[in-house]
Structure formats: structure tokens, C-alpha cells
Design a binder for these strands. Structure first.
Length: 511
RNA sequence: GCGGGAAUAGCUCAGUUGAUAGAGCAUUAGCCUUCCAAGCUAAGGGUCGCGGGUUUGAGUCCCGUUUCCCGCUCCA
């Protein structure tokens, strides 16, 4: 049932120009999507809501737009190079996945264990007169095992250096390494699992530099910490906010735009005094949750999910989850990252990255609270939370009950009939409002059909121009969710609409 | 990555034992002039995901491949 709704949502996104599969005319690209004419409006509105609520609302939060390309050492310092660069292999019978390098290291250990056993045995036999070095260089069993170790090790190191995955598999096959669970040697090919996409800068002739596409925007903030703090005369506590693309080469990317290999993040790193991080963690948890709830979806659409298993950099972490058609899913993460990142960069770049706190009269490495939200996931929650199929008395409708602030089109203006000067009147209304609101004009088909079309794309207001408008300058305004209509003066339209689509009224609800 | 299913017009789908590719909705133009879709007329739009094979002939049968969906796996 839920799957059904999700499928319909995906179809709806495509049919009305919210989200298209990437490169569709060439059969598409797995897990890559493009935002269409309405999708880009919704996405921009989401970003604006976030940006303003961070940067305008907090005088101690400033923005940043750092480059996607960064110095390769950044990713060594952050831990991404070591943590996510593994050759993986699957056993086809047990369906278990292993790191090929670990399997081979285990094999070497096995041989070393055999040698150690021989040595222990010999020690017992020869007692004090035992010469370990001499034994190791002459005993045929030890030598045989040592030869195997040398051979495996030599091939292993070379394969790793040359990134030769076929050779890794060959080692596993040659030495008949079996799956500990199934006991079988029925292996898949070895595949490199690189979390990070890489590319090259410079011509290959004079040795190009291998660089990565950033897997998170956070590091752009950390490497600019000193720049912003000094030039902006920022005093702790303060935050740096950034919106930007990030890239992760996920093995399995699925569930529409929920997990993509290219995605957009809205991250804010908040620098605090060591020891105060838990208070700030709590504070931002509340603030971020109220940001979500201000949009008006039901209370039970959201929940926190605290992490038991923490990442290498964190000492506290929680997710804000939204009730999707396929269950509660993470939309935003709030992490207490300690001083891990700044300390690491200090270590790798050799420059002091600290803050002199005049109140304490001492320097320290600030602690960091991070709030990180996926724009695409936020987009999906808005679509999933808004999509409704309603049964009416005589028929049914599909309506996107998007928060009016975020709706791609704010109002549609339509002449009741396309003659008697009504179209001109409608056009004049649009000309007056188009600089403040995204408007659509529609005169095609019956008025009811036009309302349905606007419902399907989430337009909160429809203004209908009838003959009375020509006499007394009034029109009807029809509300998407209730389908109720009011007759109002054309002069009041701007006021009525701006009140309901204002970001400001939402900001007032954020703690 | 493994296993299963699917792919025909913008959308939802039909297409018989293999023989000139269809419907509804949508779109465009016109008629009608109407406050909650589906009135009338006409038009445009598909080398049936892609590549091979079998066949006189393939949307249909076979093989491969790509993409999507479901489950498992993975997810700092």
C-alpha cells in the first residue's frame, strides 16, 4: 500500500515536471535525477527557508560557499581516505561480503601462525640451546611457510599499489581462501569500494594530481574556519552555514531521490567552547526540530533517532526522521563532532587553528556542533507529506498540500471565459503580482479542470476573474486545501497572498 | 553485489496460436462560455528500452545488455 503511494508520487513528480531521471533519452543514469521546472522552484524555496533561518535569524551565523574541489590532504585529515577505500568481495554461497585485503591479511597470519607453532615446538625440543634465527633459516617447514608469506605479501603489496583488483582475486583463488561461513570458494570479482569519486587536475603528461569530489560540504567550512573567524571578527559561539553539492559513490543508491550519488547538503557548523558542546547540541536539536515543525505537518510526522554507534569524530549524534511512505527516514543529522576536524587539520597543515577566548584568557580548539540536512531528502519529505488523493462528492482530485511558502507556483490567475475582456483583466493582475509571486495564467478548459491542474502542482491560491470583476474590481480567490472561495478586491490580493506565503511567519515559530 | 519482477505515446495500460501498433487520459488548434476534471471537431505524438539470434515475417519466441521496482546486502 505504502509502496503504491510511493510509486504514484514518483510518477507524479515526473508527470508534472518536478523530478526527471537523469539523461533519460539515453536510458538514464542510475540514481541520478534532474529537477524540472517546478522541482527547481520547490528546491530553491526549501534552500531559501533554510538559509534565511540560519543566516538572517542568527547574528552569529554567517554563510559560506566553498569549492567542491579541495586539496587532497583535506580528505586524509578528515579520515575519509582511510575509512572508505576498501576492495570488497562477496561469497556467492553465503552472500557475505568481505574486505579482500582483510582476507589476504588473515591468510598471511595463518602462515605466520604455522611458523610460530614450529618455533614453539622446536623450543621445547631443544631447550636453552635453541637458536631461533638459525632454526628459522634452516627448518624446511618454516622455510616453506615463509616462502608462501613472502610470495603472498609481495603479490599483495604490488596489487594494492597498482590497485590491481583482479590480482587480489587471483591471490584469494590461488591460496584457496574459503568463506568462513559457507566454507565455499565461490567468490565474486573484487570491486573497489570508494566512497569518494576522484578525478584529475592538470594534464596527464606531467603527472596529474588526483583529487576527490567532496563527500560532504563540512570540510569546506572547517578549512575556512580561520578565514571566517578572523575576517568576520566572529566570537565563539558562532556558526558557518553552507549549501552545496556533495558526492558519494554508494554501492546501492535507491529509493528515488532519497539516496543519490550526487546530492545537495545544507550544513551548519557551530563552533563552541569545549565543555559546552552538550548544551549546544541540545539547543540545536530543538531549533532544528522546530524549523521542521513550523512547516505545519502533523506532530507525529517527525521523531528523533539517537545514534548508539557513533562515527569516529562524534561524541553525540541524533537524526531527525520524517514519516515517509516507506517508513521513518533520516532527513537531518545533528552531530557533536568534538574538536576532531579542526585538530586533524591543525595536525596535517601544521598551522595553529585555535580561538583565543578573551573571557577565559586562553586559546583552545573549538568544539563543533553540526546540523546537516539533505536538500533532496527534504524535497522528498515535502512531496511525500503533501501528496493527497481526495475523494470528493462527485469526483476525486490529487492535491499537493505543500506549505504555501514552499509551493513552486503561488497563484494561478484565470479568466472565467476567454472573451469579454476577462483575459486582459487577468493579465493585468498578473503583471501587478509577478515580481513578488510566481504566477501562472490559464484560460484553457473548464474552470474546474483548471483548479484540478493547480491542485496537482500544489498552487495554494487560484484567482478567478469573472464579469463582476469588470464592474467592481473584485475577484474570487479559491483556497487549495479547503476548495473554498471568497470574493475580494483586486487591490487586496497582494496583501492576502503575501501574508500566507511569508517566510517571516514561519521564522516566528522557530525556537 | 545476489535473487525475483518489469520495460509498448507525456501518464495508465491493452495488444490473441508470430503477420500494416491501439485505447483512455494528457497535449495543440478550433467550437461551446460554464466557479470545481472527463461536451463537440480535428491534429500532433511510438523504429514497442537497447543489441544480437530464430523465422518468409518478431512488440510477441531465444540470448545478451541497460534502466527501474521488490527482497537480501551495504549505508563515516
Amino acid at each position: 500500500m505504502a509502496d503504491d503511494i510511493f510509486k504514484k508520487l514518483i510518477a507524479h513528480c515526473k508527470e508534472y515536471g518536478f523530478v526527471f531521471p537523469s539523461s533519460e533519452i539515453y536510458d538514464g543514469m542510475g540514481a541520478v535525477y534532474d529537477y524540472g521546472q517546478l522541482g527547481v522552484e520547490l528546491k530553491n524555496n526549501i534552500k531559501r527557508y533554510w538559509w534565511e533561518s540560519m543566516v538572517l535569524l542568527h547574528e552569529n551565523v554567517v554563510g559560506l560557499d566553498s569549492a567542491i574541489f579541495m586539496h587532497p590532504t583535506v580528505w586524509k585529515a578528515s579520515g575519509h581516505v582511510d575509512a572508505f577505500n576498501d576492495p570488497l568481495i562477496d561469497n556467492k554461497d553465503s552472500k557475505k561480503r568481505y574486505r579482500a585485503d582483510v582476507l589476504i591479511e588473515d591468510l598471511i597470519q595463518k602462515f605466520e601462525g604455522k611458523i610460530a607453532k614450529e618455533v614453539t615446538k622446536a623450543k621445547k625440543r631443544f631447550g636453552d640451546s635453541f637458536d631461533e634465527e638459525q632454526f628459522k633459516t634452516t627448518n624446511p617447514r618454516v622455510l616453506a611457510n615463509q616462502a608462501k608469506i613472502d610470495e603472498v605479501h609481495g603479490r599483495f603489496v604490488k596489487a594494492l599499489e597498482e590497485n590491481d583488483l583482479a590480482e587480489l582475486k587471483a591471490i584469494i583463488e590461488d591460496y584457496e581462501i574459503a568463506c568462513p561461513i559457507s566454507g565455499s570458494r565461490n567468490w565474486t570479482d573484487v570491486r573497489q569500494f570508494n566512497l569518494m569519486f576522484s578525478t584529475e587536475v592538470g594534464s596527464t603528461a606531467d603527472g596529474a594530481q588526483k583529487i576527490f569530489l567532496r563527500p560532504e560540504t563540512a570540510q569546506g567550512i572547517f578549512v575556512n574556519y580561520l578565514n571566517v573567524q578572523k575576517t568576520g571578527r566572529m566570537k565563539i559561539p558562532f556558526g558557518i552555514a553552507q549549501i552545496g553539492k556533495a558526492f558519494r559513490n554508494e554501492i546501492v543508491a535507491r529509493q528515488f531521490i532519497f539516496r543519490m550519488r550526487e546530492f545537495e547538503q545544507m550544513e551548519m557548523q557551530f563552533f563552541v567552547r569545549p565543555g559546552s558542546e552538550m548544551d549546544w547540541f541540545k539547543k540545536w536539536k530543538e531549533t532544528r526540530m522546530s524549523w521542521h515543525k513550523a512547516l505545519g505537518f502533523s506532530e507525529d510526522s517527525y521523531r528523533f533517532h539517537d545514534h548508539d554507534k557513533l562515527a569516529h569524530y562524534a561524541n553525540a549524534a541524533t537524526d531527525i526522521e520524517f514519516k515517509m511512505p516507506f517508513g521513518f527516514k533520516e532527513v537531518e543529522g545533528i552531530h557533536s563532532r568534538t574538536d576532531f576536524d579542526l585538530s586533524q587539520h591543525e595536525k596535517y597543515c601544521g598551522k595553529k587553528i585555535q580561538y583565543f577566548d578573551p573571557e577565559l584568557n586562553k586559546s583552545y580548539t573549538p568544539y563543533v556542533i553540526e546540523t546537516s540536512i539533505g536538500v533532496d531528502r527534504m524535497f522528498l519529505t515535502m512531496m511525500a507529506g503533501s501528496y493527497c488523493e481526495e475523494e470528493l462528492e462527485k469526483d476525486s482530485r490529487v492535491v499537493l498540500k505543500l506549505p504555501p511558502v514552499l509551493a513552486p507556483v503561488k497563484l494561478a490567475v484565470m479568466p472565467l471565459v476567454k472573451k469579454d475582456g476577462l483575459p486582459d483583466k487577468a493579465r493585468a493582475i498578473i503583471d501587478n503580482l509577478k515580481f513578488d509571486f510566481n504566477c501562472q495564467y490559464d484560460e484553457k478548459d473548464s474552470i474546474g479542470k483548471r483548479y484540478r491542474r493547480q491542485d496537482a502542482i500544489g498552487t495554494p491560491f487560484c484567482v478567478t476573474v469573472d464579469h463582476q470583476a469588470l464592474e467592481d474590481n473584485t475577484v474570487t480567490i479559491r483556497y487549495r486545501d479547503t476548495m473554498e472561495q471568497e470574493r475580494v478586491s483586486i487591490d487586496d490580493l497582494h496583501h492576502i497572498i503575501s501574508e500566507k506565503v511569508s517566510y517571516k511567519s514561519l521564522y516566528a515559530k522557530i525556537k
